[in-house]
Simulated assay, not measured.
Amino acid sequence: MLIAIVAARGRAGAPHSAIPRIWQGAIVAKTGVGIIGSRFMANIHADTVTRNPDAELIAVASPTAEHASALAAKHGISRVFADHRDLLALPDIDLVVVCTPNRYHAPIAIDAARAGKHIVVEKPLCVNVEEADEMVEAARAANVKLMYAEEFCFAPQYVRAREIVAEGGVGRLHTVKHIEKYFGPTNPMYWDIATSGGWCAMQLGSHSLGVLRWMLGKPRAIAVYAEMRRVHHHDRGLGEDESIIVVNFENGAVGVAENSWARRGGMDERVEAYGSDGTIYASLYQDNHFRVFSEPGYRYSAPGGAPTRGWTYAVYDELHNNGFPQELNHFIDCVANDRQPQETGEDGRSVLEILTAAYESARLGRKVPLEQPFRPGVARPIDCWLRDSAD
């Protein structure tokens, strides 16, 4: 963006100091970015920021010193903090990316909004709908952008599918299914329901519901029905490792989220879209026509400990194909040029509301209506499913 330094914004519409660079003889304002968190997602977002010529990675904050130091060393970050509030006090940060465990999303995002920073929050947005309400209101009150990091809405295959839908290539969409299945995460925090808020429905279903809403043009959900069960990981806790969520939307369309942490054979991640005049199949992992046979095995084929021996589906250019850099570059552009984000805190809240109602439906064994806001007053979505369980 070829603009004067004073045109950069820390608050929407308000001047903010910026980090200058010179490009083709003009002064260009860079967006200052802070990362809150220091593990897998923090590394992905830090890599994107360092490759974006219009952004500057200023600082990282994380209470785990060894992880924060490793992230800083890898990406050339000069300022490292244990407390996110110290990072938020820096005047040269315009945007923070929150990629902490789920239960910390809301308090950190609210602190960031009150500090006048724009915010990107990893999915799921937080761990209950009441927190989501508070996050959206805090961002609105501070006049900052709250952006929801659903990367699959930026994945090239899915973006192309959405373009074909938008131009009428398959007629009127009546059913969309998103499938994400593998054999469960390697990071133990996802199995801890006090931290994560739920198992596969919470972690993978948030992806699926975000994609379904976006593919259908974000109509309002009016009812949800779900089946959830634990079929394999009985030794890991009380969560669900398989879930099917069926959502009725106000335009008559049906969305199906099919998720599992009990699928062997690697990652299955795909969209099926059925319209009055056509059908779309899009797959990010197992239909990529890149197959490998290996007797000894190799380092990595796909997420979730996917197999690397025998015939396997070997992922390539994974971050780009999943939409990670496109997503964050879009959000940086929204901050720099005061644009409306494609995915917002309101989208994250809608996903979380559907998820919470899905856990309630799985407990009740019937549809849960969503014509009115669904606010069951639980600390975590999975509490709806577990509150009558003796297991």
Rank of each mutant, 00 (worst) to 15 (best):
A89L: 08
L355I: 15
Q372C: 08
D54P: 04
R21S: 08
P373D: 13
A221M: 03
R51D: 14
E130S: 00
H75N: 05
L238R: 06
N251W: 07
G197V: 10
W261D: 09
H84T: 10
P325C: 12
I222M: 07
I44P: 05
I22E: 14
G25N: 03
R160F: 03
E227H: 14
S389G: 05
M147L: 00
R21E: 11
L209H: 15
G275I: 06
P20W: 00
W311K: 00
N52G: 07
R160G: 01
A70Y: 03
E360Q: 12
R230V: 06
P373M: 14
G76A: 06
A73P: 03
C126N: 08
G198R: 04
E151N: 10
G116H: 08
V127D: 14
P107A: 03
K117R: 05
P307E: 00
D47L: 11
A138R: 01
A4G: 13
Y313C: 10
P124R: 08
L209N: 13
R363W: 02
F324G: 11
Q24A: 14
I354D: 02
F324S: 15
I77C: 03
A68W: 06
A12V: 15
R229S: 11
Q24R: 06
E227V: 02
V256G: 07
E137F: 00
N102A: 15
S260Q: 01
D268R: 09
G305Q: 00
R172K: 15
K30F: 12
K145E: 11
E250M: 01
P376D: 15
P341I: 02
I3Y: 10
A379F: 01
A59H: 05
I179C: 08
H84C: 12
A226Y: 04
N43G: 15
H207R: 00
R363N: 12
C384L: 02
N128V: 08
A4F: 05
F293A: 05
L173S: 12
T195F: 05
S17W: 04
A262G: 08
G25L: 04
E227F: 03
K181R: 13
D268T: 08
M1E: 14
V256Q: 12
H16N: 08
R375V: 13
E346N: 08
S361R: 01
A302R: 05
G310T: 12
P369R: 13
L204V: 01
V144T: 15
R213Y: 07
A46G: 09
A302I: 01
D111G: 01
P296S: 13
S38G: 15
R387W: 11
S260L: 08
R51V: 06
W191E: 00
D47F: 03
W199A: 06
D92P: 03
R220S: 08
P303V: 14
G310L: 05
H105P: 04
F293D: 13
C384K: 00
G310E: 07
G76W: 10
V351W: 05
R349W: 09
V292G: 01
A155M: 06
Y281T: 10
V165K: 06
